[in-house]
């Protein structure tokens, strides 16, 4: 299967197999006007199977969101057909507006305008806690 190289845009590589569509939805890539290719179950020496997303155009991507959903992803920025920058993502220390606090006792349950922000508490278990009530993200 062949997907043409892109000239200016972004490649999300090393996505855990099966997570590509989830990232596509969360990043709202369906709202972009440029071409977007999703390759699922691509062969990978390192991962056996992986997903890849290629965005052929400008797209504002929240790297914290990608890092939270799938921390092993590599984000390559392509300029004039070459890789201008490559970032190996890690779990972000803090995320805002990605998940919501479900604790009915939390201040965010009554003050709607407050941003839902979570802080990484345990990287090994990928546990995030609400900065307000310290409840574990579910």
């Amino acid at each position: 299967m062949l997907v043409n190289p892109i000239k200016n845009g972004t490649v999300l590589d090393h996505i855990t197999a099966g997570r590509g569509m989830e990232l596509y939805r969360i990043l709202k890539l369906n709202e972009l006007e440029c071409p977007v290719a999703i390759i699922t179950n691509a062969y990978s020496l390192k991962m056996d199977r992986k997903d890849i997303i290629k965005i052929d155009g400008e797209a504002p991507l929240d790297l914290n969101v990608i890092g939270y959903v799938d921390p092993g992803v590599t984000v390559s920025t392509i300029r004039d057909g070459d890789v201008a920058r490559r970032i190996h993502l890690k779990l972000p220390q803090q995320i805002t507006g990605v998940i919501r606090c479900k604790n009915p006792r939390c201040i965010t349950s009554v003050e709607q305008e407050l941003p839902h922000t979570f802080r990484l508490d345990d990287p090994q278990s990928r546990v995030y806690r609400c900065i307000y009530c310290e409840s574990r993200a579910k």
């Binding site: 965010t108 009554v110 307000y132 409840s135």
Partner: peptide, 10 residues
């Protein structure tokens, strides 16, 4: 003092 957790942080 506030019944909601995190209110003093806000």
């Amino acid at each position: 003092r506030h019944p909601k957790e995190g209110a003093p942080l806000v």
